[in-house]
């Protein structure tokens, strides 16, 4: 078995090109420093060092097993109890990767939507009200209002406004995924993490979802893992290319897709491997 040190010696030679967004004058909301993730003895992510710009969409691309989902799940501590995450995750100046942090409060600010649409076996209304009720919001008017605004922001309101009490499991894949987004934004997070949100959807639903994400950019910072390169190119402002547990290139999306600096990135975005 390859130990992490062997790999590191190997890869130290590898060319990398990671832009510091502070250098281009971006407002940084979240950044990681020297982030390592271990599943038991196995190191799945070496040095994920990235900065994320406020109110921008950042796409994480790379072949399967390159560590991008692992990285994303670490950002809101979803890897707690599953993996060991070392290093710093600075969220608005606070390191949230330390034991003293209340992960439940932190996950309210950094929400997550998963690959597979995962609505609860509850009504559409209760799905969205769930997280609010956990936080003690009981006022019916307030709940109604938040349910409506969340569904509107997720572009689902017009389709479901007359059947809010129907089971969420009856929704189509695209609708269910937008319900999950509505559910995530109901608690007014700062950052929205999306782990391949469109991979289970048909092309029409995917394009609707992308439009929704572009709208949401006004209010939220979005970090999205995607296998779909066109999707990354269409919606993101910045793109990070992951390979073998490492960020090899990070730059504006147009730069990554038109003028990649690293050979592997160029091979990947042009479809020569991965």
């Amino acid at each position: 078995m390859l130990t992490s040190n062997d790999v590191r010696d190997d890869e130290a030679m590898q060319e990398r090109h990671v832009t510091q967004l502070t250098d281009v004058g971006e407002d940084i909301i979240l950044s990681t420093h020297d982030l390592h993730v271990f599943y038991g003895q196995h190191e799945a992510l070496f040095e994920g060092d990235l900065q994320f710009a406020n109110h921008k969409i950042t796409a994480l691309i790379g072949p399967s097993g390159s560590g991008k989902s692992t990285f994303l799940r670490s950002l809101n501590r979803m890897n707690d109890r599953i993996a060991t995450v070392t290093g710093q995750i600075m969220y608005r100046g606070v390191d949230v990767n330390q034991p003293a942090i209340d992960v439940y409060e932190m996950r309210r600010r950094v929400g997550m939507v998963f690959q597979r649409p995962n609505p609860f076996a509850k009504s559409i209304y209760d799905n969205i009200a769930f997280a609010l009720q956990l936080r003690g919001v009981t006022d019916r008017h307030q709940l109604d209002e938040i349910v409506e605004t969340s569904l509107r922001q997720a572009a689902l309101w017009d389709q479901v406004k007359d059947e809010l009490n129907k089971s969420a499991l009856a929704l189509s894949g695209g609708q269910a995924q937008r319900l999950c987004i509505a559910r995530a934004i109901a608690v007014k997070p700062d950052i929205l993490l999306l782990d391949e949100p469109a991979s289970a959807l048909d092309p029409v639903s995917t394009s609707q979802l992308e439009d929704t994400l572009l709208d949401l950019k006004q209010k939220y910072t979005i970090i999205i893992v995607t296998h779909n390169m066109q999707q990354a190119a269409r919606i993101s402002d910045y793109t990070a290319f992951f390979n073998a547990g490492r960020v090899l290139e990070y730059d504006t999306t147009s730069q990554i897709f038109t003028n990649p600096q690293v050979k592997i990135t160029s091979d990947y975005v042009s479809g020569n491997f991965g």
Binding site: N76, M78, Y104, E105, M106, R107, R108, G111, M112, V113, F114, N118, P119, F120, A121, F130, A131, L134, R135, C180, R183, A184, V187
Partner: peptide, 10 residues
């Protein structure tokens, strides 16, 4: 289901 709930801060 569990992941969805935890990710919502439960």
């Amino acid at each position: 289901y569990r992941e969805a709930s935890l990710a919502l801060g439960a």
